[in-house]
Amino acid sequence: MDASTARAVLHYVLAGGCRIAVTGTAALDPSRGELVLLPAAARHRISPLPGLRGVSPPPPSTAAGGTGPADPADPLGPAVGIAVLDGPGGPVRLLSLRTGYDPRAVRPLVAGLPRAVLLERRRVEAAPLLRDTLRLLAEPGRRPGPGDLLLVLRAFEAALALAAGPRPPGAAHPHPGIGRTVAAIETRYAEPWTVDTLAREAGMSRSSFTAAFREAVGTSPARHLTARRIREAARLLAETGLPQSAVPARVGYRSRVGFHLAFRTAYGTTPGEYRAAAPRRA
C-alpha cells in the first residue's frame, strides 16, 4: 500500500464473546453476530470475556480458513483470517478482515466516526450486502481466492455506510446532514439524484449543502456521486456477468453516452475494454 492508502480492520464475532480494547477509547464487548469496525486500524487488543490476557490482534488460523502468515511488509496481516481464542465459556471465533482504501473517497464518513464502532447484530442482519459478504468469507472450509481483497473492501464499504447512517438518539455527528447524504450516495447511488434532492436528503438549502459538502468531502456532490457510480460500474464489469448494456441503468445512468464518457474519463478506457482486461487484473 502506498502512502495515500488508509487502512481499516473489521472483527466479526462468529461464536462467543470478547473484549476489544482500543487505544485511546473505551473497550467494546461484541458478542456473536456483532461487528466491530476500526476505520483507521487503531491499535487494539482482543481477549475472551471476562478480561483474560489478550492478543494484539489475534493471529489468523490457517486451519480455520485464514489466508496464511502475515505479509511482513504489511503489519496488518492477511486480508481474511479466522482467529480462535480459548475462553472460560468456550472458544471465541472471530472473522478478522483487513483492507486498504482511498481516504479521500470516504473522508466525511470516517471523520465522523470514533476509533472503534460496534454494529449490533440486528443492524448487521438488516444490511444484506454486509451480512452476506461476512457469511461468505466465514464459510467453513472456504479457501482463499483472488477475489478476497475485493470482497473485504465491499464489506468495509458496507460497514462504513451502516456506521455513518442514522444513529441512536443523542449520538452526535459533526456533519449530520453531509454524513447522511454521503451514506445515501454510497448505498443508493442508482437513484435519480440531483443536487437539489441531495440537499433535501441533508435537510439543507442547496447553497449551504454544496459549500458544506465540498468542505467535508473535498469535491462537489455531483462529482462524488459520479465517482461512486463509476466505481460500482467497474465492479459490475469486472466481477459479474451482467450484460454491459445493462450496467449504465444499474448504476443510475439514463444515458449510455453519458455513462461511456464518464467511465472513460475515470479509467482512461471504455467499459468494454475494461471488462476484457478484468481476468488479467484478477
Rank of each mutant, 00 (worst) to 15 (best):
P88H: 11
L150K: 13
E215A: 13
A202Y: 08
G100H: 05
G68R: 02
R142G: 13
R143Q: 15
T62E: 14
V182P: 06
L95F: 06
L76P: 00
H44W: 10
I178C: 05
A202R: 06
M1L: 15
L149D: 13
G252E: 04
A111W: 03
P271W: 09
P271H: 07
I185K: 07
S61W: 11
D132Y: 12
S56V: 01
A63E: 15
A266N: 01
A161G: 07
L136K: 13
D29W: 00
P78T: 07
A6R: 10
G272S: 09
P72S: 10
A127G: 03
P279K: 10
V22N: 00
T99E: 01
R98L: 11
I46C: 02
L113W: 01
E125L: 13
G203V: 03
P144M: 11
A171H: 06
A249W: 13
T23Q: 04
L153G: 15
I230Q: 01
V22C: 04
L10C: 09
C18W: 03
V80K: 05
R93I: 03
R93G: 02
E120V: 08
L136F: 15
V124T: 02
G179C: 05
R107T: 02
I178M: 02
P75K: 05
A171W: 11
D148K: 12
S47M: 04
A202D: 08
P174A: 07
R98M: 08
T265E: 15
L149I: 13
L153D: 14
E120D: 12
P72A: 14
A83T: 06
G66Y: 09
A3R: 14
R7N: 07
G258N: 03
G65Q: 05
G170R: 06
S47H: 08
L151A: 12
P30I: 04
A216E: 08
G268W: 09
V55T: 08
D196H: 13
L242W: 07
A183L: 00
A64S: 14
Y189K: 01
A227G: 09
L153M: 11
T67G: 15
G100D: 05
P128F: 11
I20C: 04
G258F: 04
E120S: 14
R250D: 15
L119D: 01
R45V: 03
G203S: 01
